[in-house]
Design a protein around this nucleic acid. Structure first.
Lengths: 123, 123
DNA sequence: CCGAATCCCCTACGATACTG
DNA sequence: CAGTATCGTAGGGGATTCGG
């Protein structure tokens, strides 16, 4: 029991929390958001930065984040090749909560890892 | 640009953050953790509480959370039907960060929703 | 440089039925 | 009560190829 929950609606289908989890609850969305939190970037910069992401999935992920208002796709007018992705104000406001998850992950990864090893050894 | 990142390792494959995201980045894990944050519960209590989850997926989700040390499965000795699930200390420490996501979701859901509607209308 | 278009695989998820 | 077993589908994800 951690604190009082103001929202029992959290267990109802398609409540705000579940919808947001659907947006960021895939393999790459959070990583892409982190990546853009350093500042706006071009497509290939993102791809080079994130190890292991394929072109198709990067495009899908960017579109989905753009669709939900978390990032912006800005075509630079002077240069023909100038397409930049950046966080919106909305997306930026989500970074802080997400960093809490990342902080927790680095702090508690050892414990998770040993729990997993122990479980796998016994089952 | 939100704050300085102490961890560029976040973009490397299977770093702590990505591994944790793999654990909780599915449809029901976070909801189940929320559910147990209210206190320990039996299997059917959880199932009744969470709208739309199937037996199979609930079992899978519980096993996975148990495997990674976030919840505990306790078989009560006196009663044959007494199996309780509860957060471990580790799992409890993850609730607070997760609640930040939930808070954000409720606070910013309107904006996400309208962004999505606007995008869908234009594409 | 920034993708779009295919093809294909695998797994998550769901529905249903059955069990100690 | 607390699951297992089985089947079927949708879509997430990857490799490759092509286009503006």
């Amino acid at each position: 029991m951690v604190r009082n929950f103001p929202e029992p609606e959290i267990f109802t289908l398609n409540c705000p929390t579940q919808q947001v989890l659907d947006i960021i609850g895939n393999k790459w969305s959070v990583i892409v958001l982190y990546c853009l939190a350093y500042g706006s970037k071009r497509y290939t910069q993102i791809q080079r930065r994130i190890e292991g992401i394929s072109q198709k999935v990067l495009t899908q992920t960017l579109r989905n984040l753009e669709r939900n208002g978390l990032i912006e796709r800005i075509a630079n007018i002077q240069s023909s090749t100038g397409i930049e992705y950046s966080l919106t104000t909305l997306g930026e406001s989500l970074i802080e909560p997400l960093l809490e998850i990342s902080d927790w992950s680095r702090a508690n990864f050892e414990e998770v890892s040993t729990a997993r090893d122990l479980y796998d050894a016994n089952n």
